[in-house]
């Protein structure tokens, strides 16, 4: 029977041999077999442990420590081998699974939002940020909402300038495709007590033949503020704030006297171009007292301003479209650009 020193020496040799054999293990199956042989129930270290009972206490202590040390070393060597083999297998998998990501078959293509809607959303968002809500109204209107309530009586020359498209409902020229978004002002004031801060985007109509710069159906946005003490200066400041928010801080605005039957005083508002010239953007003014009265609002208590301008033109300007008809052609080659 060997003593503890012999056992220790045997175990050292065993570990040294095992480390070599583990380093040679070429796959996980071989490693599993080695693992069983070195650390399993029939392994040398297990057998050695069973013999501990036969040793005297001093030897038993030394031998026990040697066995534990050998087991620890073997376990570490097996783990290292396993790690080495796993890394190799993973590397082989990576290599085997190499993909060319530019080989694209099928794609998730998000749709495109129409330019008009994009412009409308941007406008709405700017005005919402300025404390406005969004009002909407019908596209087919009566003469009351499109003209009369807006201080445009039946004989007024301005009626002719709207080039109105009428529909075959009611009396002749009583029902029409709205020629501006201003009817929404009336509908809002009829249904809502001041203070009112709204914008009303929507489609409007004129008897224009479609060409590169005209469409019979196009989009406008209308604004209306009715509150106590509203002034022309408020209108001017609001237009300026809107333009800076929408176009950027370097764009300037100016108001020029103009005429609309539904506002008094009336103005055109211009924005500056980079070259210093002015571009007419839309019309505006202080809500005419007759318009307020037509909606049951006392012009002595409340004052307001209104403004309106084209939405399509903003899209045309922003992308330098050379033909506005693209906005209604619905050609995917156009739609998908935006």
């Amino acid at each position: 029977m060997s003593n503890a020193a012999d056992l220790t020496a045997d175990l050292d040799a065993l570990v040294a041999d095992a480390v070599e054999r583990l380093a040679d293990a070429s796959d996980l199956d071989a490693l599993a077999a080695l693992d069983a042989e070195l650390l399993g129930k029939k392994s040398a270290v297990t057998a050695a442990k069973k013999q501990l009972g036969g040793l005297d206490p001093d030897d038993r202590k030394v031998a026990g420590q040697a066995i534990n040390a050998a087991r620890t070393s073997l376990e570490a060597a097996v783990a290292a081998a396993r790690e080495r083999l796993a890394a190799g297998a993973r590397a082989a998998q990576y290599e085997a699974e190499r993909l060319d990501l530019s080989e694209k078959l099928g794609e998730i293509r998000r749709g495109s939002l129409h330019l008009n809607t994009q412009a409308r959303d941007r406008l709405e968002d700017v005005f919402v940020g300025m404390g406005f809500t969004i009002a909407e109204g019908p596209e087919v209107e009566t003469a009351w909402y499109n003209f009369e309530a807006l201080n445009i009586p039946e004989w007024h020359p301005a009626r002719g300038s709207f080039d109105t498209i009428f529909v075959n409902l009611g009396e002749p020229e009583e029902v029409m495709l709205r020629s501006h978004t201003s009817p929404v002002q009336i509908r809002t004031m009829e249904n809502q007590e001041p203070p009112i801060y709204i914008v009303a985007p929507g489609r409007t109509f004129r008897t224009d033949t479609a060409d590169a710069t005209h469409l019979p159906a196009f989009n406008q946005i209308e604004g209306l503020v009715v509150d106590r003490g509203i002034t022309l200066g408020d209108l001017s400041g609001t237009m300026d704030e809107f333009v800076r928010a929408f176009f950027g801080g370097e764009v300037k605005t100016r108001l020029r006297p103009s005429y609309f039957p539904f506002t008094e005083p009336s103005a055109e508002f211009d924005i500056s171009r980079p070259d210093g010239s002015w571009l007419e953007l839309g019309g505006c003014g202080m809500v005419h007292p007759n318009v307020l009265r037509n909606c049951g609002i006392d012009p002595e208590e409340w004052q307001g301003f209104a403004f309106g301008f084209g939405i399509d033109r903003l899209a045309v300007m922003r992308y330098e479209l050379d033909d506005i008809r693209e906005l209604v052609n619905n050609d995917v080659r156009f739609l998908r650009q935006f």
Binding site: V128, T133, I134, Y197, V225, G233, S236, G237, D240, L255
Partner: peptide, 19 residues
């Protein structure tokens, strides 16, 4: 002169927003 009128921005009592 409209351009000589001081510019002010009115603020309503209610917050703006989408319905």
């Amino acid at each position: 002169g409209y351009e000589n009128i001081p510019r002010t921005v009115p603020k309503g009592d209610d917050p703006g927003g989408l319905s």
